[in-house]
Simulated assay, not measured.
Amino acid sequence: MGLVAPLGESKKKGSARIEPLVALVLADMERVNALILSKAGSDVAMIPEVANHLISSGGKRLRPMLTLAAARMSGHHDDGHVKLAASVEFMHTATLLHDDVVDESELRRGKLAARMLWGNQASVLVGDFLLGQAFRMMVEVGSFDALDVLSAAATIIAEGEVMQLSAAKNMATTEDDYLAVIGAKTAALFAAAAEVGPIIAGRGRAERTAFRAYGDNLGLAFQLIDDALDYGGSSADLGKQVGDDFREGKITLPVILAYRRGSELERAFWQRALEKGEIVDGDLDRAIGYLRTHNAIEDTIERARQFGDLSRDALGIFPDSAYKAALLEVVDFCIERAY
């Protein structure tokens, strides 16, 4: 694999931070982390081994932090938000275990993927165990509405995975098709994670809708930046190998844009590399060259900015507070990963 130039080297990196949100939910996250470790336990030795391999691998745990912050910002003071946040993280972890099997990924967050150590079968089954534990905790909270939102998200995520299978290696995939995939596969859990906060705080439809819109658009922006980083970031930013999407034949937005804008020769390249999977040395660098020629990476980032604007606008109905400021900064943080 050739060298990949970092995106947007001229722009200052890190002016937006996630630390304000981390600080606000620190005490709650300590309880969430303890609960996660407890609920990942089992008398079947392989289950905690596989689960803890991924749970302890250093993810930011943004999704459960959204649940905690949304609940606190909505005035919730009991402990139900802790169980829901742990449920959200278990749902996310389960999807990562399943994704790595479907995508045949070798790395996850800079470490060998669980499937590489324990096999595909164990990864899928431990993911199923975590989903089961997630739903048990949701039931313990006793909120039918929260259970409804999170269970619906689980269904939508699975639909998104199947949609992605259909779109894989298919250069006829459109931008609308792709946004539908990531709306289901990624944004649905962000949306649900944020919406359950005001639900258990007993807030009304307007607050629920606002937090859901915040999470949904944040999730879309987050995924689009990941798509851009796969062709112009670093393994440290991604938690996986740069170019994995290309090697796995994934049709992401940068590719869709470059393919539509490219010459007949360029389209033939994409068809060979992604549809047929005939990748040779130098193809990743060639792909990046086409993406840059047609501004596909920058335009993908611009799409992410637009969804980021929608995410910020959704919180406009709430009065200023430390939680609101932190959640707004999270939007900037997610988008500035590209710089």
Rank of each mutant, 00 (worst) to 15 (best):
R136P: 03
R136H: 06
R136E: 10
R136A: 13
M137S: 10
S143K: 04
D145N: 07
A146Y: 01
D148P: 05
D148M: 04
V149F: 06
V149C: 10
V149G: 01
L150C: 09
S151R: 03
A152G: 12
A153V: 13
G160R: 01
G160I: 02
E161W: 04
V162T: 12
Q164T: 09
L165Y: 05
S166I: 14
A167Q: 12
A168K: 13
N170K: 14
M171Y: 10
Y178K: 09
L179R: 09
A180Y: 00
G183A: 02
G183N: 00
A184F: 00
A184S: 10
T186F: 03
A187R: 03
A187C: 07
L189H: 10
F190H: 04
F190S: 05
A191E: 14
A192V: 08
A193E: 03
A194M: 05
A194I: 05
A194W: 03
A194T: 11
A194E: 07
I199V: 15
I200R: 08
I200Q: 10
G202L: 10
R203S: 08
R203C: 11
G204A: 14
R205F: 07
R205Q: 12
R208W: 07
T209L: 13
T209C: 01
A210R: 07
A210L: 11
F211Y: 14
R212W: 11
A213F: 01
A213Y: 04
L218K: 02
G219A: 08
L220D: 02
Q223V: 08
I225N: 00
D226L: 12
L229S: 10
L229Q: 07
L229F: 03
D230C: 12
Y231S: 11
G232N: 09
G232C: 06
G233V: 14
S234K: 11
S235E: 13
G239I: 13
G239A: 11
K240R: 15
Q241I: 13
V242E: 05
F246D: 03
R247V: 11
K250A: 07
K250D: 04
I251E: 06
T252P: 01
T252H: 00
P254K: 06
